[in-house]
Design a protein around this nucleic acid. Sequence first.
DNA 1: CGCGCGATTGAGTAATTTCAAATCTAGTGG
DNA 2: CCACTAGATTTGAAATTACTCAATCGCGCG
Lengths: 187, 187
Amino acid sequence: MQANLREHIEKIISLTDDEFAFVQSHFVTKQFSRHEFLITSGEPVQYTYFVISGLIKLIHTDDSAREHIVAFAMEDWWESDFQAFYNGTKATMSLQCLEDTTVLCLTLDAYNSLCYGLGKMELFFLKKANAGHIAAQQRILSFLTSKAKERHEKLLKRYPSLFQRVPKTQLASYLGVSRETLSRLSK
Amino acid sequence: MQANLREHIEKIISLTDDEFAFVQSHFVTKQFSRHEFLITSGEPVQYTYFVISGLIKLIHTDDSAREHIVAFAMEDWWESDFQAFYNGTKATMSLQCLEDTTVLCLTLDAYNSLCYGLGKMELFFLKKANAGHIAAQQRILSFLTSKAKERHEKLLKRYPSLFQRVPKTQLASYLGVSRETLSRLSK
DNA sequence: CGCGCGATTGAGTAATTTCAAATCTAGTGG
DNA sequence: CCACTAGATTTGAAATTACTCAATCGCGCG
């Protein structure tokens, strides 16, 4: 599977060929291999990423060096440490590949010049930010309303492909349970 | 305490007197008493709200009629069922007062005309949406990294005033623990 | 005084974690 | 084709954490 930036944007706003060329000129394509880091906690965050193909995880490492998965991002998703990206501060999370991955990279300057040159992209990014907010709220709700088993089932139903592509340990970290518990739940 | 819309907006973008008058003309002020609903689950969502004074809770009621607090909103905060508001669908959550509350109300039409007439408000709302996304991610992280006791302590440190203003039962629902457990943790 | 609501306490139970050990699996080199 | 290893997954048992249900307490208000 492979994401298409133009189709992705045109789900929200429509673009002429010229406009899309203008949009595209703000991005750089990069490739990363499994296990490589796109963002490293403690370092500046240069880009927001749009995933063309592959799979990455946004992680936070706590005081005890335990890793927690804040989000997965696959084809068609935007990801970054947005807090750090927009404020120009150091990353508090890391972004790491779970598969070989191709992304489009957008710097903050490119982002600003893109919105300045093509106002309707602001609406596009607003919708995306809102969608991110809503998705995060839904995940909070799943913590409030469901036990581990139910969260697991819902994830399985919503993103069956994740269970093919991601080691169980990673899913456990995303669900907020130990890998042993997840293993026991799967039956 | 009382929020000031102009000061609030000018933390992000600056406005002339005329511009602020234009902004203000898009809002309607409303007052609600304790226990009143601003949004009722299942009904259309007419407004996004900016809280001038008071305190409200965004709640979701699950299949077993249990209430879960997705968010609190106090002075200076924006709240709504954003999913329903932006898409014109029925609310899946309710918004209810914990205190007598005064809010500014913005319809979707007013929102659009405001952004259309004053482009920089789009940036303002984008920043707010992003802040919402980031705040929700932080809350997810607190579920992943902390036990109930730690979540409780962090909330206490971050929003001490909540503990004055909100019954413990409500805090327990926000933290995702039973009221009995919260009571035992407080020692 | 007595009611009602919120908060607390106790006891038993259920869910989840931790740590240690056992299995399983895919890939490697001989 | 086999043996071997590293990593991932599973299993067992004890300890911890949180939940439920029931009873009690404390306080403000009519």
